[in-house]
């Protein structure tokens, strides 16, 4: 079957029920998207499906054939995405395992809500677990990225 991942068309031969997560990690060697729970509880597997967040661990690959999928490897195509840069500026990651998913959820949030409140951040990000406890810095980084994006848009 044919998948569109990060702007590239790829052919994979897998059983159609295989979760997208494992197609990405084991068949396409895109290991930036992580396995944390397998039951859509932790968000580490978050990718974008046509710009909206998706938990790839519970998505059979046949659902996303011919649709645009973006992974962490694809969000900073021309240098770093502003969200990634904000993550660096605020030294957000500790162990870092959850951060691909956090960043994907944050990018989606800012697409929908360029000026998010604290409640908006809670609502968008509470599906992503961080065991290291980086939440306060994630919050600050999102607000910084939001400000930077608004400025870039000339607001």
């Amino acid at each position: 079957m044919k998948l569109n991942v990060n702007g590239e068309s790829v052919e994979v031969e897998v059983s159609e029920d295989t979760p997208l997560l494992w197609v990405l990690r084991d068949h396409l060697q895109l290991t930036g998207t992580k396995f944390g729970c397998g039951v859509a509880q932790c968000g580490a597997c978050t990718v974008h499906l046509e710009g909206a967040p998706l938990r790839s661990c519970v998505t059979p690959v046949h659902e996303v054939v011919d649709k645009d999928i973006t992974t962490i490897e694809g969000v900073g195509r021309d240098g770093l995405n502003p969200v990634q840069q904000a993550w660096i500026d605020h030294a957000v990651p500790q162990c870092g395992y959850c951060q691909s998913g956090q960043i994907m959820s944050a990018i989606a949030l800012l697409r929908f809500k360029p000026d998010p409140t604290d409640d908006d951040i809670d609502a968008a990000m509470s599906g992503n677990i961080c065991r290291c406890g980086t939440y306060p810095r994630i919050r600050k980084a999102i607000q910084a990225a939001a400000a930077q994006l608004r400025e870039a848009d000339g607001e």
């Binding site: 909206a52 967040p53 998706l54 938990r55 609502a123 968008a124």
Partner: peptide, 20 residues
């Protein structure tokens, strides 16, 4: 996870987790 009917406005769709 704090999901409500308004989560969609911040990008968190029902379909983010509830698939086909």
């Amino acid at each position: 996870m704090g999901v409500t009917r308004n989560s969609v406005y911040v990008g968190l769709m029902c379909s983010t987790c509830h698939r086909s």
